[in-house]
């Protein structure tokens, strides 16, 4: 079966000094630019979709340089899942909070009129942008990458049932 189905059957990663060095230099800039774009999307072109995508792409870049398997272990599954799930939860939370304050879904100005937060509209939008969309997009980009990289292991190539149960134990640890 070789290295054809999934990383567990053989990693074809080859280390390259050039790519490693270049990524070490470029990745901080990419991450910074992604975060700048996310946080600064209110007043200049750009926003959370772009920023989230660039943050996600940074992780892809690291994965190419250091190998996908090590990156996946470094960035734990729970981190990615909480990014995506947390983003959706924040989005729903802000929306329901405005309903609880007596308005309609995402009626931000209630943060000012009811709670008295100055610039409540802007803070509400920033919460959605940074806490919601950027996290979701970054998390989903990483998820799709890792899922596609892991590929599909057909049942006939899956090893004996012991490995299956071992997998399950690892899962329950997470």
């Amino acid at each position: 079966m070789g290295g054809r189905y999934g990383g567990e059957h053989g990693d074809t990663y080859t280390e390259s000094q050039v790519i490693l060095t270049a990524v070490k230099i470029i990745a901080p800039f990419t991450l910074t630019y992604g975060m700048f774009m996310t946080l600064h999307g209110a007043d200049t072109p750009g926003g959370s979709f772009q920023g989230g995508a660039i943050i996600g792409v940074t992780v892809l870049m690291l994965a190419f340089a250091f190998g996908i398997e090590p990156t996946r272990q470094w960035l734990k599954n729970s981190v990615i899942v909480s990014m995506v799930g947390g983003g959706v939860a924040i989005f729903i939370g802000v929306g329901l909070a405005t309903i609880a304050l007596g308005g309609s879904f995402l009626e931000y100005r209630l943060f000012f009129t009811v709670l008295g937060i100055p610039d409540g509209t802007k803070w509400g939008m920033e919460a959605i942008e940074v806490g919601g969309i950027a996290l979701i997009v970054a998390g989903v980009v990483i998820t799709l990458f890792f899922a596609t990289a892991a590929g599909f292991t057909p049942a006939r190539y899956r090893s004996t049932p012991e490995v299956e149960t071992a997998d399950d134990e690892v899962l329950s640890d997470d």
Partner: peptide, 30 residues
């Protein structure tokens, strides 16, 4: 809204519910 970028304003405020649905679609695709 107090933001200058009209695209962000429409995305997060005027059509926030739309964006919410979109975010859930992306989540579901993952």
């Amino acid at each position: 809204t107090g933001v200058q970028n009209a695209v962000t304003a429409v995305l997060a405020a005027y059509r926030g519910f739309d964006t919410f649905g979109e975010a859930v679609v992306v989540f579901a695709a993952g």
